[in-house]
Simulated assay, not measured.
Amino acid sequence: MSLTDLPILGMLRTRMHWHQARQALLAENVANADLPGFRPRDLAEPAGNGAAAGLAAPIGASVGGDGLARTEPAHFGLSTQDGPNADPRRFKGFEVRPSGNGVNLEEEMMKAGDNQSDYQLVASLYQKSLDALKIAVSKR
């Protein structure tokens, strides 16, 4: 087995490839922001690699429909679909214009920025893992 075949490095490589593919898709959404009838697309998180995959809710907590853990019954929940701030023009998180285009440049650029910072974090972890392997092999 090669040193680069370690599970942690494979997981980090998979995550970097996912971020690269997502960045290309987000760039496509921005490029087609004026195309009538265009619907933005996004990639789903890889199974088991999500940010909350290893996190569990506190003991005795119930998880509501909004994904937030309620440790006290008096906690408020978020209702994004109903309520005073609900926007009926929204379609799965994207605003649809009269031309049928669903690209919201502000949301797409926020996603692209978040994706870039997540990619940089994963790349940094990959580099640090390689550095740790080099130190272990060279017995510094």
Rank of each mutant, 00 (worst) to 15 (best):
L9C: 01
L9Y: 07
G10N: 15
M11G: 12
M11D: 12
M11H: 05
L12M: 08
L12W: 01
R13T: 13
R13H: 14
R15I: 03
M16R: 01
H17T: 14
H17K: 14
W18L: 06
A21H: 13
R22Q: 14
R22T: 06
Q23K: 07
Q23N: 05
Q23D: 10
L25R: 12
L26A: 03
L26R: 06
A27G: 10
E28H: 10
E28I: 03
E28A: 08
N29T: 04
A31I: 05
A31N: 03
N32Y: 02
D34M: 05
D34V: 05
D34L: 12
L35V: 15
L35Y: 02
P36M: 04
G37S: 09
G37C: 08
G37V: 04
F38Q: 05
R39M: 04
R39G: 03
P40K: 02
P40Y: 01
R41Q: 14
D42I: 05
D42K: 07
L43F: 10
E45T: 14
A47K: 13
A47L: 11
N49T: 11
G50Y: 03
G50H: 02
A51C: 09
A52N: 06
G54L: 00
G54H: 03
G54W: 05
L55C: 00
L55P: 00
L55G: 06
A56S: 13
A56G: 11
A56T: 05
P58T: 00
P58E: 06
P58F: 07
I59N: 04
G60I: 02
S62I: 15
V63H: 04
G64K: 03
D66A: 09
G67I: 03
T71V: 08
T71E: 11
T71G: 05
T71D: 01
T71N: 06
T71C: 10
A74Q: 14
H75D: 15
F76K: 10
F76A: 14
G77F: 01
G77L: 02
L78R: 12
S79K: 09
Q81F: 03
D82K: 01
D82C: 00
D82S: 09
D82I: 10
G83A: 06
G83S: 11
P84K: 01
P84M: 11
P84N: 02
N85L: 08
D87T: 08
P88E: 05
R89Y: 08
R90G: 02
R90V: 10
F91E: 14
K92S: 14
K92V: 07
G93H: 12
G93C: 06
G93D: 09
E95A: 12
V96C: 04
R97F: 12
R97G: 01
P98Q: 14
P98D: 10
P98L: 07
P98G: 13
S99F: 09
S99I: 03
N101P: 09
N101Q: 08
G102N: 07
G102C: 09
V103P: 09
N104Y: 00
N104W: 03
N104R: 10
N104L: 08
L105Y: 11
E106F: 04
E106H: 09
E107G: 12
M109Q: 14
K111L: 15
K111P: 00
A112I: 00
G113K: 05
D114P: 00
N115T: 13
N115R: 07
Q116D: 12
Q116G: 13
Q116P: 01
D118C: 12
D118K: 13
D118I: 04
L121E: 02
V122I: 10
A123C: 10
